[in-house]
Amino acid sequence: MNKQDTTYLDQLEAEAIFILREVAGQFEKPALLFSGGKDSITLVRLAEKAFRPGKFPFPLVHIDTGHNFPETISFRDDMIARIGEKLIIGHVQDSIDQGKVIEQTGKNASRNALQTVTLLDTIAEGKFDACIGGARRDEEKARAKERIFSVRDEFGQWDPKRQRPELWNIYNGKIHKGENVRVFPISNWTELDVWNYIRRENIELPSIYFAHERDVITRNGQLMAAADCLNMDSDDQIERRNVRFRTVGDMTCTAAVESDADQIDDIIEEIKMSKISERGARMDDKVSEAAMEDRKKGGYF
């Protein structure tokens, strides 16, 4: 293979593997934040390419809101059994039981915002100095300015004005005690790149990414999976529709789109023609235009 023949997917892959190995080399106790979504599943594949036949030099960490899609949880457990790596689960329910967060009430109640507290506690407990995440710069405007190595203070906060310049392929992972670094190996990938890579590598995904029949209700103009955690009442009309999910998050804030795309080629076609960017399907970003910037400052992924 000549350099000229190298495609952009090869280049993105090589860069992501490079970044994962920098994490292994530079940090004492890294962790990979695993959400069960396609981006973190892609990270797992990249980690296999970076470290096999050795073990991953980090555990996987999943923050479980307790309102995950059951399909995601069973996918996660099957995957962990297959790759033979360590999984640490932080439960939002524990944070609620300990009184550290208060569960929201009402129809639009969601545990999505609560998981920041659970995440920070899990990081502190595991003494993790680097957390690898699957965020991409194309997701949202605030993320376009995110570094590959993004330093957070001891409160998990991100300060856009104190981000370190990143020159060439040199990543400065030096931190003070209590600080940690969020690392984003697929920063330079777009949603379409991830899907093309999943197709090329035959990566298995949770079934909810593919079109299926499901009971849904309409909330704030968006289709939501009918589930107890949505605090449904008699106003909510349950309908049976053919849908799929473009992201895999908490059931209370992840909207479905109507779709017949049950094969990866169809999904890629659908995305190309699509007029809704990925985060548009997450209700919490609708709250304000600056929502992501505020959450990043507060320690969200």
């Binding site: 710069r137 194309d138 376009a144 300015k145 330079n188």
Partner: peptide, 9 residues
């Protein structure tokens, strides 16, 4: 105020 990365193809 900073470097922002943008993608298109």
């Amino acid at each position: 105020i900073d470097v922002a990365y943008k993608y298109f193809q």
